Simulated assay, not measured.
Amino acid sequence: MELDIKGIMDRLPHRYPMLLIDRVLDMVPGKSIVALKNVSMNEPFFTGHFPHHPVMPGVLIIEAMAQAAALFSFEDDSEVNPVDHKIAYYLVGVDGARFRRPVLPGDQLRIEVVAERISRSICKYSGKALVDGQVAAEAKLMCAIRVLED
């Protein structure tokens, strides 16, 4: 299954400048995803990180992995929709994060995330982000699903 930006925006509540997934190349609902993030010099974080040597912040690479995870985790579940204003999907844990190479303007991040465990309250994933086939970052992620009170 593939998704363009419209399909992504239909499934995630994030918007500019926090929407960090541009395209989904392959998705197996409840199992895994391969997504892309095109890194442009026009990203707002590059003005301060760093003015003379722009580097994508590692925390945003991790956030892109978490957004990708949200896209495939509940695709087959009509009761959980991350864009629903009554449901919150939070990144609550990051383990073993490693940053292997800087991500620069002009790079294309290939984000690969695999589910280790998905439940109604806590989900665990293994993710990595690659540039030109080289691992730029990798981490174990934990996300929580919460029903929001009015």
Rank of each mutant, 00 (worst) to 15 (best):
residue 86 K to N: 14
residue 37 K to D: 02
residue 38 N to S: 14
residue 79 E to W: 03
residue 90 Y to E: 02
residue 56 M to T: 01
residue 43 E to G: 14
residue 42 N to W: 03
residue 14 H to Q: 13
residue 31 K to G: 00
residue 62 I to M: 05
residue 91 L to I: 05
residue 117 R to Q: 15
residue 63 E to I: 10
residue 16 Y to K: 05
residue 137 A to G: 04
residue 112 E to I: 15
residue 134 Q to C: 08
residue 144 A to N: 11
residue 100 R to E: 00
residue 56 M to F: 14
residue 75 E to T: 13
residue 123 C to F: 08
residue 140 K to Y: 05
residue 125 Y to V: 08
residue 101 R to F: 04
residue 133 G to M: 07
residue 17 P to Y: 05
residue 65 M to V: 12
residue 111 I to V: 15
residue 76 D to C: 03
residue 118 I to P: 07
residue 106 G to P: 15
residue 30 G to D: 04
residue 44 P to G: 01
residue 39 V to W: 00
residue 133 G to L: 09
residue 65 M to K: 10
residue 45 F to A: 13
residue 48 G to R: 06
residue 113 V to I: 10
residue 6 K to P: 00
residue 104 L to V: 11
residue 96 G to K: 09
residue 93 G to F: 03
residue 146 R to W: 01
residue 107 D to N: 15
residue 63 E to G: 08
residue 35 A to Q: 05
residue 106 G to Y: 10
residue 131 V to Y: 01
residue 146 R to M: 12
residue 54 P to S: 08
residue 15 R to M: 07
residue 35 A to D: 01
residue 25 L to T: 06
residue 108 Q to N: 06
residue 43 E to R: 12
residue 53 H to P: 00
residue 74 F to W: 15
residue 121 S to I: 07
residue 143 C to A: 13
residue 77 D to V: 07
residue 96 G to H: 09
residue 6 K to E: 08
residue 38 N to F: 07
residue 5 I to S: 07
residue 33 I to A: 09
residue 95 D to W: 04
residue 96 G to A: 02
residue 82 P to V: 07
residue 52 H to I: 14
residue 140 K to M: 02
residue 137 A to C: 10
residue 4 D to V: 08
residue 26 D to C: 05
residue 141 L to W: 11
residue 52 H to P: 02
residue 66 A to V: 12
residue 103 V to W: 01
residue 148 L to M: 14
residue 91 L to H: 06
residue 100 R to G: 00
residue 25 L to N: 15
residue 49 H to K: 05
residue 63 E to M: 11
residue 36 L to A: 01
residue 131 V to S: 05
residue 68 A to P: 10
residue 27 M to I: 11
residue 5 I to P: 12
residue 123 C to I: 02
residue 77 D to T: 04
residue 42 N to M: 09
residue 29 P to H: 10
residue 50 F to N: 02
residue 62 I to R: 08
residue 135 V to S: 01
residue 143 C to Y: 01
residue 9 M to S: 05
residue 16 Y to S: 10
residue 118 I to N: 08
residue 126 S to W: 00
residue 139 A to Y: 02
residue 6 K to C: 01
residue 133 G to F: 12
residue 127 G to C: 09
residue 130 L to S: 13
residue 36 L to K: 12
residue 52 H to N: 15
residue 28 V to I: 14
residue 40 S to F: 08
residue 77 D to R: 12
residue 67 Q to F: 10
residue 21 I to V: 15
residue 59 V to G: 07
residue 7 G to M: 06
residue 32 S to I: 03
residue 92 V to S: 09
residue 114 V to Y: 03
residue 4 D to F: 09
residue 14 H to E: 04
residue 47 T to P: 00
residue 150 D to P: 14
residue 99 F to V: 04
residue 72 F to M: 08
residue 147 V to K: 15
residue 76 D to I: 02
residue 106 G to F: 10
residue 71 L to Q: 04
residue 115 A to L: 09
